[in-house]
């Protein structure tokens, strides 16, 4: 069965993933909107940057984060100046790494959802003298709700599934950076297969269920098109 350290790791994972998901939505929403609406010529570069974690091995991301956030790195200098210390081996560092790592999984579904809305609803709202902010919250958000749902689920699930980056910047500290994927890896390496099975099997079931839910809900709802 699960021991106390396993439960700690699970609880920590839930905390990291929840906080990262909230931050991802706050950051990803304006970013995705800008990427869809803006005529800026920087868009191509931004799109490429956002998509980088999809193709980069976590070892690359982890390596650069370790250096950047370390005492000799640019980010490390700034955080030390701010009195925060350096971020590797901390819960905050882990959340920041997760946000970067899961960014495309949140931004891309939102981008797709925003793009699918098209001009007409926005023009209609404008003729009714809705402010841009009002338009966004009363028109765009409801219309893009599937996008938000997908983004939330993928952002959360992908953060739960994060391993390589955590291994490199985490330092395997109980209750701070030892998340469930690292705990499973430790069990496997220590040949504690029974313990590993409990966690690994649980994670498999969780991931499948959450994806099944996502595809199930989206399948039944995406047929409904409010402007037809």
């Amino acid at each position: 069965m699960l021991n106390a350290a396993d439960i700690d790791a699970l609880w920590l994972t839930v905390q990291v993933a929840s906080i990262a998901t909230v931050l991802l939505l706050l950051l990803g929403t304006p970013l995705a909107w800008w990427l869809v609406r803006s005529p800026s010529r920087w868009k191509g570069i931004c799109n490429a940057l956002v998509a980088l974690p999809l193709v980069l091995p976590p070892s690359v991301l982890g390596f650069y984060l370790l250096i950047l956030m370390g005492p000799k790195g640019v980010v490390g200098h700034i955080t030390t100046e701010l009195g925060l210390g350096t971020l590797p081996f901390t819960f905050t560092g882990l959340v920041i790494a997760s946000v970067l790592y899961s960014l495309p999984f949140v931004v891309q579904p939102l981008q797709a959802a925003f793009a699918a809305i098209g001009e007409r609803p926005l023009e209609a709202a404008a003729t009714l003298r809705a402010s841009p902010l009002d338009t966004f919250f009363s028109v765009v958000v409801p219309l893009a709700r599937h996008g938000f749902l997908t983004a939330t689920i993928l952002g959360f699930a992908h953060t739960v599934g994060e391993f390589g980056v955590v291994l490199m910047v985490g330092g395997n500290i109980p209750n701070k950076t030892r998340v469930v994927s690292v705990q499973i890896y430790n069990h496997v390496e220590a040949l504690e297969y029974e313990q590993a099975h409990w966690l690994a099997g649980g994670l498999l079931l969780f991931s499948f269920t959450i994806l099944l839910f996502m595809y199930g809900v989206l399948k039944t709802q995406s047929v409904a098109q409010p402007f037809k």
């Binding site: 370790l66 956030m69 370390g70 005492p71 081996f89 330092g171």
Partner: peptide, 15 residues
């Protein structure tokens, strides 16, 4: 560190 090589990374990067 997961192994001794990774432990060295933590130290040599100054973290």
């Amino acid at each position: 560190g997961e192994n001794i090589a990774q432990t060295q990374q933590f130290i040599s990067t100054g973290n």
